[in-house]
Design a protein around this nucleic acid. Structure first.
Lengths: 184, 184
DNA sequence: GAAAAATCGGACATCGGTGTCCGGTTGCTA
DNA sequence: TAGCAACCGGACACCGATGTCCGATTTTTC
């Protein structure tokens, strides 16, 4: 009955394999953090290591593809005139609870220009709304964008240090603590 | 001319080698963090790997020996009746700036009973002074010991993520932020 | 001063991860 | 339907770290 037996070989499979790799990497990074072995990603995608490295020559290119959606989502939210700094931070913390990998990549020291570019995109996203929030007196007047990035980095670090079951509680307390430190 | 050519062989060298290993580990952990390769410690101590593993069968035993002094110092300070929570936190942050390794070990998830024991010692140290500080209204009434450990963990994480030159600045801002979140 | 006991050091077996290489498969084109 | 270009997969070479093993070295003891 001519079942379209899916194969992942041949030229026409390239796009599908690429997508499968990104999806698998998203899950693996979420489960095991940014440093997860890439061989696990290839296995989860049902694809050989060769294909992984052909599509994404290094960890960074794969990660950038995985996180592009999240960054775009942030930028879209920031573009909304009625969105506040609070909304942005809420979205970031939600993304971070889902997977700390993005913040791990962005906030660790790295001289890779592609990573720096992403960090700059995030900083830019926060910048405008932060100025607004300061004017409105919602946050301390001396709060800087760097402070926000620092806070998000600390938040992500707490999550990576705890085992999964204890995360939600620790996340709530940690973010409350950080929030009180930022509020006016 | 019978120069007392120092050797690190033979029975009488054991104690000296042990001390050299602890000193070397202290420096290596400070420079490269808690996950630093033990082979680097042996090299820095001028001692073979065999001796390292003979004296300290695993990373934890070596680390415990290295950090014992710091914990004892904390306990001594806590025993002083006039010492405040603030004094304790200052000492901890100073120790952390010198080397994040101790906090990395203590605040990461670990089921090793020896590590749990050290964490408990630190928690106990903080506990008494925290109650005092709460009564005196120096910190928020709902601040818990876990919050303090969380805060110190976040602080250490910031330091490990930054390259050495940027540390002091980031440390100051991060700690100020955390402190504001704790103060009444 | 010679043998026994205690200790050392580094070579090495092992392991897990990275990134490469090439024989084999697929689909496009003529 | 034959040939070719694109692509796949997994074996494998490499690397750095861990932990072990044993011949070599030093001290102690008699």
């Amino acid at each position: 009955m001519a079942v379209a037996r899916r194969t992942n070989r041949g030229p026409s499979a390239a796009a599908g394999n690429r997508a499968a790799l990104i999806a698998a990497a998203r899950e693996v990074f979420a489960a095991a953090g940014y440093e997860a072995p890439l061989s696990a990603v290839a296995r989860a995608a049902g694809v050989g290591q060769g294909s992984l490295y052909r599509h994404f020559p290094d960890r960074t290119s794969l990660a950038l593809a995985v996180f592009e959606d999240g960054v775009a989502e942030l930028e879209a939210l920031a573009a909304e005139p009625r969105a506040t700094l609070d909304d942005l931070l809420t979205l970031i913390t939600e993304q971070t609870i889902a997977s700390t990998a993005f913040i791990e990549m962005v906030s660790a020291y790295a001289d890779d220009p592609r990573i720096i570019a992403v960090r700059d995109r995030v900083a830019k996203v926060l910048d405008g709304k932060l100025a607004e929030a300061r004017r409105a007196g919602h946050v301390r007047a001396d709060l800087t964008t760097d402070d926000l990035i620092l806070a998000v980095g600390m938040f992500a670090a707490v999550l990576t240090m705890r085992p999964a079951p204890a995360r939600r509680v620790a996340a709530a307390r940690a973010w409350a603590l950080l929030r009180r430190g930022m509020d006016a």
